[in-house]
Nucleic acid binder design. Sequence first.
DNA 1: TCAAGTATAATTGTATACAATCACACATAC
DNA 2: GTATGTGTGATTGTATACAATTATACTTGA
Lengths: 230, 230
Amino acid sequence: MGNYDVKNEVTDKYSLRGRVFNRIREDILNGKYKEHGELKEVAIGEELGVSRTPVREAFRQLELEGLIQIIPNKGAYVTGITTKDVRDIYMIRSYLEGLCARWVTEEITPEQMAEMEENIFLSEFHASKGHYEQMAEMDNRFHEILYESCNSKMLEHLLKDFHQYVLRVRKKTLANSERGNQSNLEHRMIMEAIKAGEADRAEKLANQHMINAYENMVKLGLNEIENDTQ
Amino acid sequence: MGNYDVKNEVTDKYSLRGRVFNRIREDILNGKYKEHGELKEVAIGEELGVSRTPVREAFRQLELEGLIQIIPNKGAYVTGITTKDVRDIYMIRSYLEGLCARWVTEEITPEQMAEMEENIFLSEFHASKGHYEQMAEMDNRFHEILYESCNSKMLEHLLKDFHQYVLRVRKKTLANSERGNQSNLEHRMIMEAIKAGEADRAEKLANQHMINAYENMVKLGLNEIENDTQ
DNA sequence: TCAAGTATAATTGTATACAATCACACATAC
DNA sequence: GTATGTGTGATTGTATACAATTATACTTGA
């Protein structure tokens, strides 16, 4: 929050403001609004059937989320993520997911453990069938389970935000079965370390898992996806 | 915070909105608005001489900063930080300051190195004179120099926000000369590791420095400062 | 032709008006 | 006496009106 720091999520996802916020956020993450594209308050307001007021408030939050940048008296622009930003984020995530895996080892509940095992089982099933879409979903969910199981709202929120943040650049790298199988294997190893109560091992595996994910992404041509020199 | 994820700071500190935001933020950090205290839009607006609009927008941002919580249709409340939150934050900071020290070792410029050395020199001077106020300032500044020298806007922002965030609970622990001297020594050791180009050592020292700071805080009675069971 | 200045349109910033919701006190029924 | 219902005031949510700023196109002059 500040960014970065300790942020709360938008309290009410179902209020008008919450809906506007989430909608714009999605549209940015889905690529509907291009990098450095300008966001007009009235245009978006009309599209969502609301006035400028809730749109403006959503903008203020999206700015802190890092998704847009507001230049006073000028406008709101979708932020560009540089390749260096992506590298930094993955490295930061590597550290934090390591810490998370450590805490999960100490704090996970039986229910969460069961969900994690189920996730891995299902993920391997989808991999065997070549269901790329579901594999990607399972992959995202595995990490969310991890975040939710560490029993720290602070860390959970931090990691969820980072996770969301990189989805923008990660999309293309999912449809790759080789990495999918390897990723599943790594998930399984992390899970087993957690189950065995070996925090050190779980942490190291989580570190490496993130680094591998990053290197795979680079190999598949991150440079072609993003080449922002800002 | 964000909270957590990759947040930008409020773009224009000097616009009306920026001033309102920073003013409320300060007042919360300074303790003017108590924990769980309710913030009224009109009251704050009148106090700052503005209408509700900029106040509301500032609220939306403060919510993501994690300083307040907005309950729809009810109001904005200063968030309570639990002792567990504080522990979590310090542990997260320990990891991230470690990563930061590593990157600083690789990326620091001669000018930044010089400023860091000067900071330590001055800090030791103030310690010898018993200037507690200045010692605290120097301590804060040391960490900021560290953040600014890692050459990563992402990490810099993340750590600055966390740093800000804990100032609320840290105030009382500064006026303690014993910890002050120890802290200065640790700063010096981190600096020397960075200067020697030993990233591993710098990282470990930064980790431990944060843990020591936390334990000192606990020893001085964090429980008396905060005892929130939320 | 080019430069500077000016007018106009578009957009954001702020204030205010109105609607919706909530909290609390009071009244009424049992 | 307690519980339920209702009305009033306070507060937030949204829309709109107006002010300030910016960008752009056009005009004017050399």
